[in-house]
Amino acid sequence: MSFLEVTDLKVHFPVKGGLFGRTVGHIKAVDGVSLSIEKGKTYGLVGESGSGKTTTGRAIIGLNNITSGKITFEGRDITNIRKVSKDIRKDVQMIFQDPYSSLNTKKRVIDIVAEPIRNYEKLTKAEETKRVQELMEQVGLSPESIYKYPHEFSGGQRQRIGIARAIALKPKLIIADEPVSALDVSVQAQVLNFMQDIQKELGLTYLFISHDLGVIKHMCDRIGIMYKGRYVEEGSPADIFNNPQHIYTKRLVAAIPDINPRNRAEHIKFRQEVRSEYEKSYDKYFNSEGLAYMLQPVSESHLVALPEKG
């Protein structure tokens, strides 16, 4: 049994319309996603906007209602995480995308970071202050700044406060929903490296959601690529980046910019080749609705959404 196992997860949003707000249809934000994460590893979820990667993460932590499917965490069913017992819930935490709106501007840092501690543990004021100061140190912020307000910090520092809050309960799994995409590139690397450091230090497991392939390559041990609510390809970074099998993945990988300007002409040519291949073989890789097929294993670690043979 793996650490986190998601089986055939579906999140459908009803579309209301017409007379009396009847449900006229569904948006299938996540449509049959299965993934499993091993303890201490980082699992990367990539996809374009609206591909359902964020919805998947939010469904796991209980911010979106799950239409069907099953989620198990350390062998225990957490499909309805808001209803399961508190000690499991505190093991799964989340880092949010926007460090500006995810911290309550009217609260001091000590109140923000201590919120989970107050919910789950009974500590005296002094113990709590000490704990928050330790957490601030852990994320590389000055412990003296706990009485400041979020607007007194920079974006990168705010994201660290968000991380301090997420690790306050010593969780086992952290869902990081595009944790660096709102940050400056120079700060991105800083926060990412820091996330890797605390992963080693605390033995964390990450579900890392991003649209940035470079970041994913840097961080992840296993990668899943989503398109329109379904997986198109899943595998190790080597599988995905060196041997992409699905045409969608090929295009994604081809879109990574090449830093060396001498290869520019070549790179453009390669991209155009992939593009024409994409247009030609679109029908082969996607079904009549434009959705991906079920995943088929092509090697031990590598799964690709291909039509069933025969």
């Binding site: 932590i61 505190k90 935490q93 995308q97 309550n104 609260k107 919120e115």
Partner: peptide
């Protein structure tokens, strides 16, 4: 997001309302 964050941190709805949203 701060309301969503409070939910994932285990705060009850009324607690979120009166200590997070009200200010």
């Amino acid at each position: 997001d701060y309301v969503q964050a409070s939910k994932t941190l285990g705060s009850s709805n009324f607690r979120i309302l009166f200590t997070q949203v009200l200010p």
